[in-house]
Write a protein that binds this DNA or RNA. Structure first.
Length: 807
RNA sequence: GCCGGUGUGAUGGAAUUGGUAGACGUGCUUGACUCAAAAUCAAGUGUCUUCGGACGUGCCGGUUCGAGUCCGGCCACCGGCACCA
């Protein structure tokens, strides 16, 4: 018997798959149903592949391989999301051009991914830094601009003090930079923005039709943060009406004061009317100095300033109430001002206590002197509220909205927490934003014929302290002429964030070499929607949301035929270090896939990473357990090398277990229960070691194993000369439900719900004959001796429970 | 604080969705082979036990003939959001 030389075997088959383009998807083969399986394309970092990558990749590879065997026309592509900071930082350190670094890293990643035997369609690989690719990223930006979805605005933005770059809200975690951990401060800057808020409603509502795992839907919904309520107009003694948003218009009679955010525009407008403007200015300065992080840290203690000389009028009762400014009211949400109902809102209550303001109870049931009574279930009864008295909150809300509308002082309103997407980055290694600024014409888009706008070469990639991109120093590139009027003009020097290229990459895979369009009509009609997309939870409110937004826009302008890019979304758990901690260089617990492949082979790594535990949950790496998977493959090798004679029928001894295994493996792959599928394959192999397999037995084992461990399977397939076509090109085995069932079954016999004995009965035996067999059992006779049998419960093929009472 | 998730042997994890808890793997014990070790193969492995049994899925209670699974109340850990009106 030949040794199991996994290194030689794996290289041999990888080469053959690539040479023969075994896994190329065939567009236009209408005889077969299409299946588009997608994994998140990697960022090609200098560290190379991490063991985290193989988990989702192996999972989708197994699914793709099985679908091919089931006759689908499968598109399973890969590419590289190569713009981004780590590469740029590396360039700063080494003075090697990011383009070169990216090229090397992509080469490393490619060979590592090929080393693991993934059935990617390599001819379709995309690279977001390729001008032929980012031409279309820029093109989409131009379409957004033309449709009013891209705009430049000066506003306070998140500024990472270490990366020296603006961050999107989604990139700020606990007040620090998601990537480097440095503090994020607020900085006033002029930025390109994308109006994702225009799509907020559709981004929430359309989730209902999608087959996404629930936690993804919930997280996106929370992030978009829809709340329904009303806008209410308060007249003021300054003359202007002050508009507020509230989710509880029913509590309007309890509104005893108002609060504006320190940034509210009326403050400047009212400067002459406000008699304590000095105090107001001082508070504004202090609030402005605080970073987001400090604002949240100091959340407990309320601060604020009462506006002297201005009062508001509560529209429902004409009462004059004071107005404050406080940083607990955010300028960016709602109208930047609130009506305060201290009796029923915790924050308002704290503020009212501190400033000794009136607290009026309008919903019965709490003790508003002690704490705010926040009713969550809408069932509280309204009091002190004139025409609302006696109603539940649920009834009072629409009643109040109606009243507001009738009196023209308010209306129903929906608000979202989602903010527009800050889209410019002051860095080098990104897509140039194809816009030109002309003193006369303002911002002018580059004509599409000038795309791609190439990223210029610079001498120095170092970001500048004044917040400008390194490209700003390339005056030859920056200075241009206005596409509209021909006058001297300047190019935009900020670049796009790394989320840009990844927001549409799945479309390019459908038609990667199209030079006329980002994707051809036929290709996008055929591949249509991604059938199954697996990726990390960390992208839920970033890439996953952004790409849904872009796709909806592309749908609106007629580029794609579907409203949503992904029909189904699943997510894998993280691979942790040995101690159950996150793998990191500083902890020194990083496992390199290369080492595992060298020592045990790619098939063992694939098998282990799928066997490690529940796919959705995090799992710690266990080096000794890897051996178990290697041992399993050693046993398969031994079985498979033995020369078998005869036809391809199943042996009588193994037939039942084979049908069970086909069923279990088929179903488990579709449910991503890879660990139990592998366990069943192990059980089958254990049985083959008891009952020598026939030639047909071995053939079906190899077919079932081939998505998991494709290399060893192809080698054994060749040794056995099963077919001219490779194992991966065989039809997926089918099972006979009847043959998965045993002829006899062991059932439990319980007395009063406790298992007392076990007996073997024929499959599907009727209750009376089972009862007879039960009563013949010695242990049961003993247990029921001298007892009254009250009743019996029979669950077919499972158990019989006898209920007895002492006589 | 709000939203979501998880809790099962020494260990990673199974359990037909209310029906024999611990599949499969690791580890450990014993045996075979070996001068020996590794590898391989075989048997065993939840806890306690007076060997009749008794107990056992984070804790307390409930529903049920029957609960890891359902309900109520806690505890612990993980993830997300957070002064969002």
């Amino acid at each position: 018997m030949a040794d199991y030389e996994f290194n030689r075997i794996e290289k041999k088959w990888q080469k053959r798959w690539l040479d023969e383009k075994t896994y190329a998807a065939v567009t236009g083969d209408t005889t077969r149903e299409k299946f588009y399986a997608l994994v998140e394309f990697p960022y090609p970092s200098g560290q190379g592949l991490h063991v985290g990558h193989p988990r989702p990749y192996t999972a989708m590879d197994i699914i793709a391989r099985k679908r091919r065997m089931q006759g689908y026309n499968v598109l399973f592509p890969i590419g590289f999301d190569a713009f981004g900071l780590p590469t740029e930082n590396y360039a700063i350190k080494t003075h090697i051009h990011p383009r070169e670094v990216t090229k090397q890293n992509i080469a490393t990643f490619t060979s590592q991914l090929q080393m693991l035997g993934y059935s990617f369609d390599w001819d379709r690989a995309v690279d977001t830094t390729d001008p032929d690719y980012y031409k279309w990223t820029q093109w989409i930006f131009l379409q957004m601009y033309k449709n009013g979805l891209a705009y430049k605005a000066s506003m306070p933005v998140n500024w990472c003090t270490s990366c020296k770059v603006v961050l999107a809200n989604e990139e700020v975690v606990d007040g620090v930079c998601e990537r480097c951990g440095a503090p994020v401060i607020r900085k006033e800057k002029s930025q390109w923005m994308l109006k994702i808020t225009e799509y907020a409603e559709r981004l929430i509502d359309d989730l209902d039709e999608l087959d996404f795992i629930e936690r993804v839907k919930i997280q996106q919904k929370n992030w978009i943060g829809r709340s329904t309520g009303a806008n209410v107009k308060f007249a003021t003694t300054a003359g202007d009406d002050l508009m507020v948003f509230t989710t509880r218009p029913d509590t309007l009679f309890g509104a005893t004061y108002m609060v504006m955010s320190p940034e509210h525009a009326y403050l400047d407008k009212w400067a002459d009317v406000i008699s304590n403007m000095d105090e107001v200015r001082q508070y504004q300065v202090e609030a402005g100095k605080k970073s987001d992080f400090e604002r949240t840290e100091l959340a407990k203690e309320k601060t604020g300033v009462k506006l002297a000389g201005v009062e508001a009028i509560n529209p429902v009762n004409g009462k004059k109430i004071p107005i404050f400014i406080s940083d607990y009211v955010l300028a960016t949400y709602g109208t930047g001002a609130i009506m305060a109902v201290p009796a029923h809102d915790t924050r308002d209550w704290e503020f009212a206590k501190k400033f000794d303001l009136e607290i009026i109870e309008v919903v019965e049931g709490g003790n508003v002197d002690e704490e705010a009574f926040t009713v969550k279930d809408d069932s509280g009864i309204m009091i002190n509220s004139d025409f609302l008295n006696g109603m539940t909150a649920k009834e009072a809300i629409p009643a109040m909205i109606q009243w507001l509308e009738e009196h023209d002082v308010g209306s129903k309103q929906v608000n979202y927490k989602l903010r527009d997407w800050v889209f410019s980055r002051q860095r080098y290694w990104g897509e140039p934003i194809p816009m030109v600024h002309c003193d006369k014409c303002g911002w002018v888009p580059l004509p599409e014929s000038e795309l791609p706008l190439l990223l210029p070469d610079v001498e120095d990639y170092e970001p500048t302290d004044n917040g400008e991109s390194p490209i700003a120093k390339m005056t030859d590139w920056v200075n241009t002429t206005c596409p509209q009027c021909g006058a001297p003009a300047q190019r935009e020097t900020d670049t796009m964030p790394n989320w840009a290229g990844s927001s549409w990459y799945f479309l390019r895979y459908m038609d990667p070499n199209n030079s006329e369009a980002l994707v051809g009509k036929d290709a996008v009609e055929y591949w249509n929607q991604i059938d199954w997309y697996n990726g990390g939870m960390e992208h839920t409110t970033l890439h996953l949301l952004y790409s849904r937004f872009w796709h909806k826009f592309l749908y609106d302008i007629g580029v794609v035929p579907t409203k949503e890019p992904y029909a189904k979304r699943t997510s894998h758990g993280m691979i942790l270090g040995e101690g159950g901690e996150k793998m990191s260089k500083s902890r020194g617990n990083v496992v390199n896939p290369n080492d595992v492949v060298n020592e045990f082979g790619a098939d063992t790594l694939r098998l282990y990473i799928m066997f490690i535990g529940d796919f959705e949950k995090a799992a710690p790496w266990n080096p000794t357990a890897v051996k178990g998977c290697k041992k399993f493959l050693d046993r398969v090798w031994k079985l498979g090398c033995e020369k078998l004679e005869g036809d391809l029928s199943y042996s009588a001894a193994n037939e039942k277990e084979i049908h069970k295994t086909i069923k279990k493996v088929s179903e488990d792959i579709d449910k991503m229960k890879f660990n139990t599928a592998i366990a069943q394959l192990m059980t089958l192999v254990n049985q083959f070691n008891q009952n020598k397999p026939s030639r047909g037995d071995l053939k079906v084992l190899l077919e079932l194993l081939s998505p998991f461990a494709p290399h060893i399977v192809e080698e054994l397939w060749e040794i056995q000369q099963f077919d001219e076509k490779m194992a991966c090109q065989q039809p997926w085995p089918e099972y006979d439900e009847e043959k998965t069932v045993d002829s006899s079954v062991e059932i439990a016999v319980q007395i009063n719900g406790k298992v007392k004995s076990k007996i073997t009965i024929p499959m599907d035996a009727d209750e009376d004959s089972v009862y007879e067999a039960v009563m013949a059992d010695e242990k049961i006779q003993k247990a029921t001796d001298g007892m009254n049998i009250i009743k019996r419960i029979y669950i077919k093929n499972r158990l019989m429970n006898i209920i007895v009472k002492p006589q």
